[in-house]
Amino acid sequence: MNAAADEYLMPGGGASITALPKVSLHDHLDGGLRPQTIIELGEEIGLELPATDAPALAEWFAEKSDSGSLVEYLKTFDITTAVMQTQHGLARVAREFVQDLAADGVIYGEIRWAPEQHVARGLTLDQTVEAVQEGLDQGVEDARAAGHSIRVGQLVSAMRHADRGLEIAELASRHYGRGVVGFDIAGAEAGFPAGNLRDAFDFLAQHYIPATVHAGEADGLDSIRGALFDGRALRLGHGVRLAEDVHTAREDDENTYVTLGPLAQWVKDREIALELSPSSNLQTGAIEQWGDDLVDHPFDLLYQLGFRVTVNTDNRLMSATSLSRELFLLAETFGYDLTDLAVFQLNAAASTFLPLEDREELADRIATGFDEA
């Protein structure tokens, strides 16, 4: 069963989290495939898989992804990207991706993926973007027919360890406003700073194309600085390790005082969104310095300090999750109520790469949905 098909209620019963209107900012296309789709597309190209039935394959992905290492976590994508090398494969995956988001109550989603990883069977970069857009459009129509209203946009990612940043930025520019809403860099973070792609970010700035940058997941504060000042990032992909710049000191048994370093203060003051992904952050070891349970995640600390926190899935297949499940886990762990969950969704709406008027309309839909819950 897809995680998106499961219904999550507020802890202790009550409102359906699944039915609430939600915004997804950090969700990878190649990390959200249905296991059965992998099996069927794999058969078409003769791909050998570690399991040949959907539940077992889903279990394999979850197990392999729970390694405590981003590098090891990323190896599972060798299988998903292998079945996404044709127009048919890309369009099908994108279509089902939107269907699953809509079934989980998402009303707006930005879907990130790296076209350069999908040209092994002869597609051009532009053809991959067009194939994904075709699937996304079909998924939106399917959702409408099923009684859901959803809007989506592509975030075109460049792989930070490759030397194609400017080429991918130019690709994003060619499709900007025709499905593409922004740019991202992804892949192994440590050792590959945003500054290596400075020419791409210069190009994007000159063409008024917004960027989010993976930073503060597998590397620390220097990576976040690079994302902000070399990448001109308007959002931080994960950004969880910004908490390294939050300093606490206990004065006595009752009082703990918190001070922010200059980087954390900058991010807070400018309301730069943190695309936090709780389950994924546990799997990749991004929060290992604070602990290995969800209660150790600095999400609540950052929220209580007034940072613009958002909740995301990162990779629904690898984490066996959905946006509703992530919200449920946070509510269960930190005692959040519907008011808190509404804040997370309004934060996300305000941080989308949509025009201002569209962001305001999205916020109105979220507020109405939560008021009626």
Rank of each mutant, 00 (worst) to 15 (best):
A158W: 07
E189N: 01
D184Q: 11
D222Y: 11
R225H: 01
P210W: 10
H207I: 03
A188W: 10
R174K: 14
E170V: 15
G195C: 12
A233M: 04
D202H: 09
A188E: 15
H148R: 08
F192I: 03
R198L: 12
G135D: 05
G165T: 10
H175A: 10
L221V: 14
D222T: 11
I150T: 01
N196R: 15
A162P: 00
D184V: 10
P210N: 07
G182T: 01
R164P: 00
F203M: 11
R151L: 09
L155E: 05
A211L: 01
F201R: 05
L155K: 04
P193D: 12
V152D: 07
A188Q: 14
V152S: 10
R174Q: 14
V152H: 04
N196G: 10
A146V: 01
G165E: 10
L171G: 08
R164T: 08
A190W: 10
A233C: 06
H207G: 00
G179R: 08
L228V: 01
F203E: 12
V140E: 06
A205H: 11
R144W: 02
R225Q: 04
L197V: 06
G177C: 10
G231D: 08
A186D: 00
F203P: 03
H214W: 06
L136R: 06
A143F: 10
G195R: 15
L166I: 12
R198M: 09
A227H: 05
A205I: 07
F229Q: 02
I168D: 06
S149D: 14
V180F: 12
I209R: 01
E170Q: 15
S157T: 09
V181Y: 00
S157L: 09
Y176Q: 02
A169C: 09
G220W: 06
D184S: 07
G153H: 06
D163L: 15
L155G: 03
A186G: 05
G216H: 09
E134D: 12
F203Q: 11
G226Y: 09
A169H: 02
A162R: 14
